[in-house]
Design a binder for these strands. Structure first.
Length: 780
DNA sequence: GAGTTTGAAACT
DNA sequence: CAGTTTCAAACTC
């Protein structure tokens, strides 16, 4: 299976994290395509925050004994001890194990994430591990010091070396219980994760979660960003299991600096913890840029997520009560890098038999079976997993089909562990998974488009969706993220098994979910009920969010541009054409390749092509002005031909217009504005009147429906309904009370009541007349 | 709705 | 960078 090229991966925001299920082959994608890593994939997948390649290939455990207390990760990989994690036909990830002490997790697609679903060998609980993304981290596991060193695949050479040695079992030593993660930050400083020492010797089964052995803890350390511990509620189904093998951790570590985003930080953590032999002291010691965070947990079986270098840590440290199973000792930590320094929201898919509400679970699988399971309650439905990335303007939603998201646990005995069966790990491929930023129903602050390499974070209320990302491997296309329009949504492109992400306007997510594509691409069928709700939009060309939100974009009518040029407003706004009148439209997912080329062309021509034209003006000038200015010659800049006028801003000094009348003192402009205002008021009034009338008519029609049905030859409207009678009577009674309270004479009271009755009759007649006329107009 | 006008985008 | 062409929206009838 083809994989997305590293170049393409480099284009994808690191925040985009998707998880795919890792399954046994029997649970693999319907087509059975297991992604195999390609040599070319071993080449460094460029990441903007990568440390120099030379330093990425890490071998931090020279003293590691290759065979001591180790188990191969790919127990059943027949030929090369390589198991592939296929993240679906579009998001393949392969993990190649090397026989050397170095254990290489090599996602063939950097942006792919993996959701590993394994079946606990003992408890039979199915656990889903999410979070492999951009996992280009060959890591070594030190047998001497309990360290696991994760690092990116710096070069193909390293990977090839790892591959060549794949025939040999992976050696993971548990002596140190230290976990070293490198290449996470730009600084190149490794992160050392100190694995908990359970005190148990390797190979000795230990029950985790019971009264004797508290649940193991592991700490997830992030570089930069605030920390927020994602509570992971262990469920009753998290039974204690005995581990015999490595434990897999998948960490997603954001690199970006924390932002003002209110989105909680979450991690996608997949961990297969082999707490056996680990000392009771659970310590995660990340070394970040020389900083070492060491936190000791009194309860070795507890998982702690710690955010490092989080200046704005507002979330209390929460412990994830993970029922970590005691196992032989080695841990596999996969670090999912993100350019965001802020931690990312953990999104893991839960697939258990437990009666748990929408949850996301961390599935843990190991040679000895699943070691623990993490259940993360979700606010959203199981099939729509939101991934909020603080520090990013994106909100991601992972669309998970029922195959993986809601798959039931596989009751399996101790001998049915998927990993134990040594079958290639294959991420559920048939499922449609998308990591797409979405804007929740409520408008949130988002981060303006910034270079991924930039640590600066600019918050903005803009929520406009733009499209930029390639869905197919297009190495030659490298959009300038600096100029990318905000609000990019990533989604897997349809139809292609080798495609990665497609840039989808956020609102298109809903479209996708409801479109046949999703249904077709999804092996299990994607519930349409997971539609994402309303989404805010960015100010468009200076218009406020409210304006753009309340006013749907006009459909384009392009005929010759294929909607792949800036002539097309949809394309220019970074949106897919939807409900447009265009012909031969290529501005859709089906033509993602062409579209991406067009995007690149536009960006090459004008790096700011997708930036809003209306921006902040110079100091002393209007707050809003056209970025380039207009060039009007004949319209006097008083027609919508003029982009300044269209944006309801005045021309500025940078405009090159001739005969401009779009300035402050222009009488023509004032007149036009007044007329426009008056017209707008009229339109609003008319709209309100129509709305009110329609409502009334609808109400009347509903009330009179039985009468209509029983019709006869009578007037189709019987307005003297029970409700009308009651209302009339109430009016009359009220009038009588009023007369009584005011001590009116009886004659006067009767007069008032009759008068009120007359008013009621008039209202009834009036309504009847209107309804009749309107009904006649609509052939009622 | 068809035709015209207009100016931005694209092209040379 | 300037001139020309293309294009689709805005506008007019």
């Amino acid at each position: 299976m083809d994989v997305v090229s590293p170049e393409l991966n480099s284009l994808l925001p690191d925040e985009i994290m998707d998880t795919e299920a890792i399954e046994d082959i029997p649970h693999s994608q319907p087509d059975g395509t297991a992604v195999q890593s390609e040599p070319g994939d071993d080449t460094s997948v460029p990441m903007e925050t990568d440390t120099p390649a030379a330093s990425e290939n890490v071998n931090l455990c020279p003293d590691a004994a290759p065979t001591e207390h180790t188990q191969t990760l790919t127990t059943s990989a027949p030929a090369d001890s390589t198991f592939s994690i296929s993240t679906g036909s579009q998001l393949p990830i392969s993990i190649s194990s090397a026989s050397s002490p170095l254990l290489t997790l090599k996602p063939s697609m950097a942006t792919s994430t993996a959701t590993t679903r394994t079946t606990d060998s003992v408890t039979g609980t199915t656990v889903t591990t999410s979070g492999l993304q951009k996992l280009t981290a060959p890591f070594t596991i030190s047998a001497a010091n309990h360290q696991i060193i994760l690092n990116k695949v710096a070069s193909s050479q390293a990977t090839e070396a790892a591959k060549s040695a794949a025939s040999q079992p992976q050696v993971i030593k548990q002596d140190g219980q230290k976990l070293l993660v490198t290449a996470i930050g730009k600084s190149g400083q490794p992160i050392v994760l100190q694995l908990p020492h359970t005190g148990n010797k390797p190979g000795v089964s230990q029950t985790v979660g019971d009264s004797k052995s508290p649940a193991p803890q592991f700490k997830v350390v992030t570089i930069g960003g605030r920390s927020e511990l994602k509570p992971v509620a262990g469920s009753a189904g998290n039974q204690v299991t005995t581990l015999q093998a490595q434990q897999l951790k998948t960490l997603q570590i954001a690199k970006k600096t924390p932002t003002s985003s209110a989105a909680p930080i979450k991690f996608i953590i997949t961990k297969t913890v082999n707490s056996k032999g680990l000392s009771p002291q659970t310590t995660v010691s990340p070394v970040i840029a020389g900083r070492v965070l060491t936190q000791n947990s009194p309860t070795p079986s507890k998982v702690t997520v710690v955010s490092v270098a989080s200046p704005t840590s507002n979330a209390s440290q929460k412990s994830m009560t993970l029922p970590v199973n005691v196992a032989l000792g080695q841990q596999i930590l996969t670090v999912q890098q993100s350019t965001s320094a802020s931690p990312v929201k953990v999104a893991t898919s839960q697939t258990t038999t437990q009666n748990i509400k929408p949850v996301q679970s961390v599935a843990v699988g190991g040679v000895g079976g699943s070691q623990f399971k993490t259940i993360i309650p979700l606010a959203t439905q199981p099939n729509v997993q939101q991934i909020q990335v603080p520090g990013s303007r994106f909100h991601y939603v992972r669309l998970v089909t029922a195959t993986t998201a809601s798959s039931t646990g596989q009751p399996s005995g101790p001998s049915t562990s998927s990993i134990q069966t040594a079958k290639p790990m294959v991420v559920s491929t048939g499922a449609v998974r998308m990591s797409v930023p979405i804007v929740p129903a409520q408008t949130i602050k988002q981060v303006a488009p910034k270079p991924l390499t930039s640590a600066a974070v600019v918050t903005t209320t803009q929520t406009q969706q733009r499209l930029i990302m390639p869905a197919t491997p297009l190495p030659q296309i490298q959009p300038n993220f600096t100029n990318l329009p905000p609000g990019t949504v990533l989604a897997p492109a349809p139809g292609g098994g080798n495609v990665g992400y497609a840039v989808v306007p956020a609102q298109y997510v809903t479209q996708l979910q409801q479109s046949p594509f999703v249904t077709l691409a999804s092996s299990s069928g994607f519930p349409a009920s997971t539609a994402i709700q309303t989404q805010a939009r960015l100010p468009l060309n200076g218009l406020s969010t409210a304006e753009t939100t309340s006013r749907p974009r006009k459909p384009c009518n392009c005929t010759k541009s294929q909607c792949l040029k800036l002539y097309c407003d949809c394309f220019a706004n970074g949106e897919f054409c939807n409900n447009c009148n265009c012909n031969n439209c290529f501005n859709n997912l089906e033509h993602e390749t062409e579209r991406l080329k067009a995007i690149k062309t536009c960006l090459d021509r004008n790096p700011e092509a997708f930036k809003p034209k209306i921006g902040k003006g110079k100091e002393g000038e209007s707050d809003r002005r056209h970025s380039k200015g207009c060039n009007c010659k004949r319209s006097g800049c008083l027609k919508n031909y003029c982009e300044c006028y269209e944006a309801k801003i005045m021309c500025s000094s940078i405009c090159k217009c001739i005969g401009c009348k779009n300035f402050e003192e222009s009488p023509e402009r004032k007149t036009l504005m007044h007329l426009a205002d008056a017209a707008e008021v009229r339109v609003q009034q008319q709209t309100a009147a129509k709305t009110k009338l329609s409502s009334q008519i609808s109400d009347l029609l509903m009330r009179t429906a039985p009468v209509i049905s029983s019709g006869g030859g009578r007037l189709p409207y019987t307005f003297v309904t029970k409700e009308v009678l009651e209302a009339t009577c109430e009016c009359l009674l009220e009038q009588a009370k009023k007369a009584e309270q005011t001590h009116q004479p009886q004659a006067e009271a009767e007069r008032l009541i009759l008068e009120e009755f007359g008013h009621c009759l008039m209202r009834i007649i009036s309504s009847a007349g209107k309804a009749k006329a309107d009904c006649a107009s609509i052939n009622c």
